[in-house]
Every structure is written in C-alpha cells, then in structure tokens.
C-alpha cells in the first residue's frame, strides 16, 4: 500500500544549518497494516509523515501509494488516498464552519467539487449516526460552529472526518499529544476501533512508547533519519517498554519517551 524507496530529505541544503532529516529510508507497508512510528525529537518522524502526505517532496527516492508513483503529486492531489490528523486539535477542522459543514467537506475528500449544495440533505442521517459513535452528544449540535467545541471534541471530530469516506491510508501525527490524559485515552481507543473496523492501513507517529507498543501490528523506531528497529507480529506482541528502553536506552535520549507512565495515554512525567 505504501512504499518508500531510498527516500532522502535534507533541510536547509548547502547552508551551515543543513540537516539530513530522512537518510535513505526503504519501507514497505502492506495493505491493512497498522504501523506505529516512534523516535526521539528530531529523529524524522513527522518529516516521514509529511513526505507520505506530500506536504513537501523528497530530495531523493520515490514514494508509491497503492502501486502508483506519487513522488511529485502535490498534497491536494494525494488527498484521495489518505485521511490525516495533526497534533494540534485546531488544525483538522474549520472553526468558523458548523459540524455538519465540516463533515460534508470531509465526505467529498479527493472528489471534484461543484455548485451543488455543500450539505447533501440525504447524507445528514449518516452524519448523525457517525457522530453518535463518538458518544459526545455532537449529533445534537450539528448546526453549531466547531469553534464552540473543546480540543478533545475537535480531535474526535477530526478523527471521524478522516475516516468518514474510508480512506486507503490513515496518517496520524501524534494526534493525542496535545490532549489531557483522559481524552487522549478515549481518542486513541476510538482510533483503534475505527482502524480495526475498516481495516485501515495506518501510520501513527507517537512520542508515547506505551502507545506505540500497545497499538498496531508493527512498530518502527527512527533514529537520526534511519530506521533503527522494525518489529512486527508475535515479536511485537511480546514487547514491553522496559525491554525497548533496555535495548535502545543509549540512543533514546528523549526524556519524554523514557519516563512514560505505563498506563496513561497522555504525556507522562
């Protein structure tokens, strides 16, 4: 489903601040796999996600989505492949528009837009049912502006929007990091539920090692732009935080990563 071939990304090329963010990564993610990506600050996690999403292109290498080379496709033309959620809960929704209008926009992901009514009345029932899934009472507030919702509610809505027109790929960029622990737990569980229900190919970047180990079929650890650990199947099931820290403690200098309380979903410490 996702294939990265010798991807290299350099920021501030030919300056003193030159930084090799991604250094020749090869990665093959089969359809339906839920991959968690972990690594310390500056390891290249978000860069990797941005490259797949098309926020910017790589300096070298090719990116294939669903067998098609998308290396040079701009972000908005890749949109039909993926749904994406950002770390900042404000980034996934349009605040000045209503819940219903936001859902209607997500419903048209990657499709041509014309002069038909923005909210298709026959889809309203579907939106209402989908909102009920969130269990936040939003189904009764569909006409209200999104700016009235809390961060957690907005992130839940974003999650719903990202999965509404079932995408081939789901990109999650530390999407629970800015939420309080309780809300974060709820959002991550909802994520897991939706991913399983639709068998979505998913890449989830996280700072939280407990999350990375607990969820998903495969875990990739990045270090200085390279994949330093790639584990899946039974081996991943048996993994524990202590084990990983034991093995990679020397390279994982990031404190936020190491002192994660094992049961909370938020930012520990």
């Amino acid at each position: 489903m996702v294939r990265l071939e010798h991807i290299k990304k350099v920021f501030n090329k030919n300056t003193v601040n030159e930084k090799i963010a991604i250094d020749g990564i090869n990665l093959d993610i089969p359809e339906g796999q839920f991959v968690t990506v972990i690594g310390s600050n500056g390891a290249g996690k978000t860069t990797l996600l941005n490259l797949v999403a098309g926020t910017y292109g790589p300096d070298e290498g090719d990116i294939l989505l669903d067998g098609e080379c998308v290396t040079h496709l701009p972000e908005h033309q890749r949109a039909r492949y993926y749904g994406r959620i950002f770390q900042n809960p404000l980034m996934g929704t349009a605040a000045s528009m209503s819940i219903e209008e936001n859902l209607a926009m997500a419903d048209l992901r990657g499709k041509p837009r014309g002069l038909k009514w923005g909210v298709n009345k026959s889809r309203r029932g579907f939106y209402r049912e989908s909102l009920k899934l969130l269990d936040l009472g939003l189904e009764n507030r569909m006409k209200q502006n999104v700016s009235l919702l809390s961060g957690g509610q907005r992130q839940s809505l974003t999650l719903l929007m990202a999965t509404l027109s079932v995408p081939k790929l789901l990109l999650l960029d530390e999407h629970t990091a800015a939420l309080d622990p309780k809300t974060a737990q709820k959002v991550i569980q909802l994520t897991d539920q939706l991913v399983k229900e639709y068998r979505l190919t998913t890449i989830m970047v996280t700072h939280n090692m407990q999350q990375a180990i607990q969820y998903g079929d495969r875990m990739i650890m990045l270090h200085e732009g390279k994949i330093c650990y790639d584990v899946q199947g039974e081996e991943k099931q048996a993994l524990t935080v202590a084990e990983v820290v034991d093995r990679f403690g020397a390279t994982l200098t990031d404190e936020a990563l190491l002192c994660q309380a094992p049961t909370t979903g938020g930012t520990g410490c």
Binding site: A53, H76, Q77, M91, A94, K111
Partner: peptide, 9 residues
C-alpha cells in the same frame, strides 16, 4: 484552515 482543506483534496 488552509492546511485542513488541502488534505481534503
């Protein structure tokens, strides 16, 4: 929210 609507195509 330019970023958001771009990721919606």
């Amino acid at each position: 929210n330019e970023q958001m609507i771009r990721t919606l195509g």
